[in-house]
């Protein structure tokens, strides 16, 4: 995967016109959009980065990339506010603006040769999907791969068809758990850290990629530390209120860091003290 081109002044400050080329409803309140530039080439991305998506007349929001094709960015968006509501209602052909891509990436190059453990909670699977696809596309470069997915209830599972395809992959361990379910659900029930002892990995030679609600990520990181996974190889994707996306406005300040430019993917050993600060 090539390094992304530097963000130009125009790309950083002024939205570039894009067009929705496909829209797919994933869940009741969640939609995946494929969007392509109305002119010019698609910028390169790294797994874990995000774009600022702009709906004219409504506003702009930071949305993680959940994938990319040669011609389009893929974003999975939950309807949680005015901007995301407008985004999830965009039909194919609609115009929108885009700044990006921004932010740090999952360390897919640095983890070559290691076991890789991916832990996704809820919609946190979306920002991890480009990393999963990259790992599977370069399977021979990695040790054992494990994907642990947590969701609230069975109907809340994101990308069920792709998960089924991943499950069919014999050299990727996939486990899915629900926080709550009745006896009609025959899969696993329990919070996602409980899946860790079931995955086969060498803690001393493992990199963990975690994305989900922050409490879930903290609990998972703590459990991994207890299993002797080094803190510097535990990577979390954080979320804060991002506005400018280039480290100027301070809305996403996290201690001495800005999530938009120092994150969203950050090493646990560098952020663990800040994660414990309530006001951050």
């Amino acid at each position: 995967m090539s390094m992304p081109a530097p963000i130009t002044e125009r790309g950083a400050f002024v939205p570039t016109p894009y067009r929705v080329i496909a829209a797919r409803r994933e869940l009741g309140d969640t939609v995946t959009l494929n969007i392509a530039p109305q002119a010019g080439a698609l910028p390169a991305i790294l797994p874990g980065q995000f774009n600022m998506l702009y709906v004219p007349g409504v506003g702009e929001a930071a949305i993680s990339l959940s994938g990319a094709t040669e011609a389009a960015f893929i974003h999975t968006i939950r309807d949680v506010g005015a901007i995301s509501h407008a985004l999830t209602r965009l039909p194919p052909g609609a115009s929108l603006g885009l700044r990006g891509p921004f932010g740090t990436a999952w360390p897919v190059a640095e983890t070559q040769g290691r076991d890789v453990l991916i832990v996704a909670g809820g919609l946190g699977l979306a920002p991890l999907r480009p990393a999963i696809r990259h790992l599977l596309a370069h399977r021979e470069r990695y040790g054992k791969l494990s994907l642990l997915i947590g969701a609230r209830t069975p109907p809340d599972i994101l990308y069920p068809h792709e998960i089924a395809q991943w499950r069919a992959n014999l050299d990727l361990y996939v486990a899915v758990t629900m926080d709550r379910a009745d006896a009609m659900w025959h899969g696993h029930v329990g919070v996602v850290p409980l899946l860790l002892p079931r995955a086969d990995f060498d803690p001393a030679n493992t990199a963990a990629l975690i994305c989900g609600p922050e409490v879930m990520m903290r609990a998972t990181a703590q459990a991994l530390l207890g299993m002797a996974v080094p803190a510097e190889r535990i990577h979390l994707s954080l979320e804060r209120n991002m506005k400018c996306a280039i480290g100027l406005c301070g809305h996403c300040q996290f201690g001495a860091a800005f999530i938009c430019k120092d994150g969203p993917v950050m090493r646990y050993d560098r952020i663990a003290p800040a994660l414990a600060v309530r006001e951050l």
Partner: peptide, 20 residues
């Protein structure tokens, strides 16, 4: 202790928030 921590996390219902 692991069960207690898991039960606490389960009670929090972390995916009920708007973003996850």
């Amino acid at each position: 202790v692991q069960s207690l921590n898991a039960a606490r996390l389960q009670v929090l219902d972390v995916y009920a928030g708007p973003y996850y």
